[in-house]
Design a protein around this nucleic acid. Structure first.
Length: 210
DNA sequence: ACGAGGATGCTCT
DNA sequence: GAGCATCCTCGTG
């Protein structure tokens, strides 16, 4: 591949209200260069926002009791742009990026990507998956396809050499952003904090859009 | 097409 | 010990 036309997303991008960041991440690129030097690139088409006051947020118990950040979810109070990666259902690694200023709890869960580059490697990592569009459809699927694991928990995506977000500097495909309720949660279902690129074929779940 | 169920391990939401 | 920000397989229609 020739010189990529990317511009890394910086700290200022993530140091904003979580809902704003979750919406603005739609259409951006997530990039991972693995140990072999293979680039894995996906265009973000589905995100979910989580904030301290939100009962579905992992840091809600910290926020509610007004304690100093601690435990797994304490990382949500860290620098904007920090990666938060945790094991879900004992099976899947889920990738989030921390938002808001340091000291405020917020993160955006990346739920689906349209594969852009490194597709052969993604297919090798997800041999069960038949359709290219579905290689990164779903938060557990995309970490597996991209090769993102717990070794990246806590890194700064705004500075890290091999895992970061970027904006395309050349042509950008048009997208129509819609909001829905979030998936797979029991509390906070009434909040429309899921953002999707409505017409993307790479969304998670069986029913693509709403 | 779609629903049910199991895998599997960390956190305490 | 309960409860997950999931996904895959296998059963039915």
């Amino acid at each position: 591949m020739v010189k990529p036309s990317w511009k890394r997303l910086d700290k200022a991008f993530f140091e904003r209200h979580t809902l704003e960041v979750a919406a603005d991440l739609i259409g951006k690129l997530l990039i991972h260069r693995d140990a072999d030097g293979t680039y894995h690139v996906g265009r973000v088409v589905e995100t979910e926002a989580y904030r301290g006051e939100d009962p579905a947020c992992h840091a809600h118990h910290i926020w509610r009791t007004n304690r100093a950040p601690f435990g797994r979810a304490g990382i949500l109070y860290d620098e904007p742009g920090t990666a938060y990666i945790y094991l879900n259902y004992g099976v899947h690694w889920l990738f989030n990026v921390v938002t808001e200023s340091k000291g405020e709890a917020g993160a955006v869960l990346i739920r689906a990507l349209e594969p852009v580059q490194g597709i052969a490697s993604m297919q090798a990592r997800r041999p069960q998956c038949r359709k290219i569009d579905k290689l990164c459809a779903g938060p557990g699927n995309l970490t597996k396809a991209m090769g993102i694991g717990p070794e990246y928990n806590g890194i700064q995506t705004t500075q890290h050499a091999t895992l970061f977000f970027a904006e395309e500097t050349a042509e950008k495909p048009a997208h129509l952003i819609k909001t829905t309720s979030r998936i797979g949660i029991n509390k906070g279902q009434e909040l429309p904090w899921r953002f999707i690129s409505a017409k993307s074929p790479a969304l998670s779940g069986s029913m693509a859009s709403i």
